[in-house]
Design a protein around this nucleic acid. Structure first.
Length: 592
RNA sequence: GGCCUCGUAGUUCAGCUGAAUAGAAUGUCAGAUUCCGGUUCUGAAGGUCGGGGGUUUGAAUCCCCCCGAGGUCACCA
C-alpha cells in the first residue's frame, strides 16, 4: 500500500468514527504535499465538509488530531485552508525505502497473464526510413517495454509494405538507368540505393508530364498518361501474375532494402519478434468480407464491388472489395487482425500508426464489431502526431525529409565533438569512447522524441540539433555515470551496504517519495501506453539526485552509518533509472 | 462542408482521474567564480493557460459556442 492509499484509509476511518458516516471513495482525495508546506501527504478536506458541517479548518483539525493519535506512522499534521498536511515519521519512510531497496527489479509488475501484440514501424520498401519512422519505432519499442513492465506478454511485429506501385517505380527506374548498380559495387546502403531510383523515377515522370503539357495535353490527363507511369503499372500487373523476371528483380531489390533497414534498426536498438510482409497477407480478408455479405452487414453493388454503409454511425460508405474482386487496404487489415487474434489468442492489439490514419482505424474497429467479433474492442490505435520542421511539414517532393540514418549520424557526431571538447575522456580507450558517443547521441535523440506526449504534433529543428543539457537524455545518462562513479569509490573504501540508522534528511525524503511512485508511473504509462510519463519521471528523479548531491557530500561524512545509508539510496536511484531508461530503450553508461 | 486532434512563459515541453501562488528546460537580463569563454553557481524578469459563456466551494483540466492550426473524408497503403 503506498502512502497516499494509506492516508486515504486513515482519513476514511477518521470520518467514520468522528462523524459516523461512511462515504464513497471519490470523496477522499490525497496528493503529494506542495514543497512550500510542511508535510508529505495532503488530504483534501473540502469534499468532507458535508459530513462535518463545520469549517474546513476545524474539520481538518479534527481529522488530523484523530489520526495522529491513532497511527504511530504519523509524526505531525497541520491544516492550511482546506488542506490537511500529514507528515510521516522517518521510521515509516525508512521502512518503505528498505522494502524498495530490497526488491529485485523494482518497477517490474507481476505477471498479468495477458498477451499483447504491438505492430510498429511498418515501412515501405521503396525508400529509406525518415524522422517520422523514428518516432514510430521509438514509440513502438518503448510501449512494448512498458507493457512488459506491466507484466504482459508482448509480441512485437512489423508489417512491411513490400508490394505495390511504389516498389515498381524504383524497379523500373533502376532497370532503365542502370541495370547493374548494387549496394556492393556502389558502396551505397541498400535502402538508400533503392530510394535513389525512386527519386529518379519521379524526376523522369515530371519530365514526361512537362513534355506532354507542352504538347497541349491538360495536366491532369498528362499525369495519368505519362508512358513511364504506364510502364510501372504494367510492371505491377506482371508482378501480380507472377512474371518471373519481374519477381526476381523485386526480390533482389527488396533484399537490398531489408539489409539497409536491418542496419538502421540495429543501430536504433529495435527489433521484432515477427515480420509480416504484405505480399503474403494482402489477399487476406476477402473471406471475411464475403462472410459479411452473407450476414447482411455488407452489401454488394451491381458492378460486384462490396461496401459497408456506415452513415448510421456518422461515417461514410466504405469500399471493401473492388468490382474486379481485388482487395483494398481495409480488406487486408480486417484479415490480418482476424488472423492474429486467432493465431495468438491475444488480449490486446496495438497499432502504432500516425494520426493521419485515425479514420481508418476507427472504421476497422467498427467493421469488425459489426461482423460480431468481440475482440474488436481490444484493438488500440496508438496514434501519434507528425514531426514537423521549422518550415512546416516534411515533404519528400520538396526534399525536406530528414533521413533517419543521417540524423543518427549527426547526433553521434555532435556527441563526439562536444565530449571531446570538454576533454574529460582522455584516459578512456578509443573503443569505449566510441560506444559512449553512440549512447549519448542516440540517448539525446530518443529522449527528445519520447518525452513528448505521442498524440501531439512535435517540432524538430535540425539546425539547433538537440541539447545535451537540461531536460535531456544525456543529463540522465550523466547522472547515472556519476552515481556509478561514487559507488566505485565507495567500493575502494570497502564500505558495506547495510542500513543501520533511520535518520533521513528532507532531500532524502523527497527522493524516497519519488521512488515510491515508480510502480504507479509504470501502471499509468501502461494504461494509456505513454512512455512520455516514464521519461519525465526519470528526469525528475535524476534532477532530484543532482540537487541532493550538491547539498551533501556523500562520501565525506564522518559517520559510517550515514555514508552507507546514502550509498544504498543512490544505488537504488541508479537501479530505478536503469529500469526506466531501459523501458525507453536508452542505454546508461558506467562512466563519462 | 462533415468528423477527429491540438492551442499553456520568447522557444521546446510537463501539468494524472477538477484543488493551495500553473511547473521544468532553454533563451533573456543581473550578479558570483576564472586568464577568456561555449564551464559552474545564485537570483530576477517573463503567463488574463487562444477568446467567451456554463457546471462547481474550487476549472489549464469537465460541458457549450466562437477563433486559429493540423489531419481526414481515395477503387493509395
Amino acid at each position: 500500500m503506498n502512502p497516499e492509499q494509506l492516508v486515504t484509509k486513515w482519513v476514511k476511518e477518521a470520518v467514520k468514527n468522528i462523524y459516523g458516516e461512511g462515504a464513497t471513495d471519490n470523496l477522499f482525495q490525497t496528493q503529494a504535499t506542495r514543497k512550500e508546506f510542511e508535510g508529505d501527504i495532503t488530504a483534501v478536506i473540502f469534499p468532507l465538509l458535508k459530513f462535518s458541517k463545520k469549517s474546513p479548518e476545524i474539520t481538518g483539525d479534527q481529522i488530523g488530531s484523530y489520526i495522529t493519535s491513532n497511527y504511530k506512522e504519523i509524526e505531525s499534521y497541520n491544516v492550511v485552508k482546506g488542506f490537511l498536511n500529514i507528515k510521516l515519521t522517518d521510521e515509516y519512510w525508512m521502512d518503505v525505502f528498505n522494502t524498495i531497496a530490497s526488491t529485485q527489479d523494482y518497477g517490474q509488475l507481476p505477471q498479468s497473464g495477458k498477451s499483447v501484440m504491438v505492430e510498429f514501424s511498418s515501412p515501405n520498401t521503396n525508400k529509406p526510413l525518415h524522422l517520422g519512422h523514428i518516432r514510430n519505432n521509438l514509440l513502438g519499442w518503448s510501449v512494448s517495454n512498458l507493457l512488459k513492465a506491466n507484466g504482459h506478454k508482448v509480441i512485437k511485429v512489423n508489417l512491411v509494405n513490400d508490394r505495390g506501385i511504389h516498389i515498381c517505380k524504383s524497379m523500373l527506374a533502376w532497370q532503365r538507368l542502370s541495370g547493374k548498380e548494387t549496394p556492393q559495387n556502389s558502396g551505397i546502403k541498400g535502402d538508400h540505393l533503392v530510394g535513389k531510383y525512386y527519386v529518379a523515377f519521379n524526376d523522369m515522370l515530371v519530365k514526361e508530364v512537362e513534355e506532354l503539357i507542352s504538347q497541349k495535353v491538360p495536366r491532369e490527363e498528362a499525369e495519368k498518361q505519362a508512358p513511364i507511369l504506364k510502364a510501372a503499372q504494367e510492371m505491377l500487373v506482371k508482378w501480380e501474375k507472377g512474371d518471373r523476371e519481374v519477381f526476381e528483380l523485386w526480390e533482389k531489390m527488396n533484399s537490398w532494402v531489408y539489409e539497409g533497414f536491418e542496419k538502421t534498426y540495429k543501430r536504433m536498438g529495435v527489433s521484432f519478434d515477427k515480420i509480416y510482409y504484405e505480399s503474403q497477407t494482402y489477399l487476406l480478408g476477402k473471406e471475411l468480407v464475403k462472410e459479411g455479405v452473407v450476414k447482411g452487414v455488407f452489401s454488394e453493388k451491381a458492378d460486384g464491388s462490396v461496401w459497408c454503409d456506415l452513415s448510421a454511425d456518422g461515417l461514410d460508405e466504405k469500399l471493401l472489395l473492388r468490382a474486379d474482386g481485388t482487395s483494398v487496404y481495409m480488406t487486408q487489415d480486417l484479415g490480418t487482425a482476424h488472423q492474429r487474434f486467432s493465431e495468438y489468442n491475444l488480449d490486446e492489439h496495438i497499432y502504432v500508426v500516425g494520426n493521419e490514419q485515425n479514420y481508418h482505424f476507427q472504421v476497422l474497429k467498427l467493421l469488425l464489431k459489426k461482423l460480431g467479433y468481440e475482440w474488436s474492442n481490444n484493438l488500440y490505435h496508438l496514434s501519434y502526431g507528425m514531426v514537423e520542421l521549422p518550415e512546416g511539414r516534411m515533404k519528400s517532393r520538396e526534399g525536406t525529409v530528414v533521413d533517419a540514418d543521417d540524423l543518427i549520424e549527426n547526433m553521434v557526431t555532435t556527441a563526439r565533438e562536444t565530449s571531446l571538447e570538454l576533454g574529460k575522456l582522455d584516459d578512456m580507450p578509443k573503443e569505449e569512447k566510441e560506444q559512449l558517443f553512440e549512447m549519448l547521441g542516440l540517448g539525446a535523440l530518443k529522449y527528445f522524441i519520447i518525452k513528448v506526449d505521442p498524440k501531439k504534433t512535435m517540432l524538430f529543428d535540425p539546425k539547433e540539433s538537440i541539447d545535451f543539457s537540461g531536460n535531456t537524455g544525456p543529463f540522465i545518462q550523466y547522472t547515472h555515470a556519476r552515481i556509478r562513479s561514487i559507488l566505485r569509490k565507495a567500493e575502494e573504501q570497502k564500505l558495506q551496504a547495510k542500513i543501520t540508522d533511520s535518520k533521513i534528511n528532507p532531500r532524502e525524503r523527497e527522493i524516497i517519495k519519488l521512488l515510491t511512485n515508480f510502480p504507479d508511473k509504470i501502471r499509468e504509462g501502461g494504461i494509456d501506453h505513454s512512455p512520455a510519463i516514464i521519461a519525465n519521471y526519470a528526469y525528475d528523479l535524476a534532477k532530484e539526485f543532482n540537487q541532493y548531491y550538491h547539498e551533501v557530500s556523500i562520501l565525506k561524512e564522518e559517520d559510517i552509518n550515514i555514508k552507507v545509508q546514502r550509498l544504498i539510496l543512490i544505488d537504488t536511484i541508479s537501479a530505478v533509472l536503469r529500469k526506466a531508461m531501459g523501458i525507453l530503450g536508452i542505454q546508461l553508461p558506467e562512466r563519462m
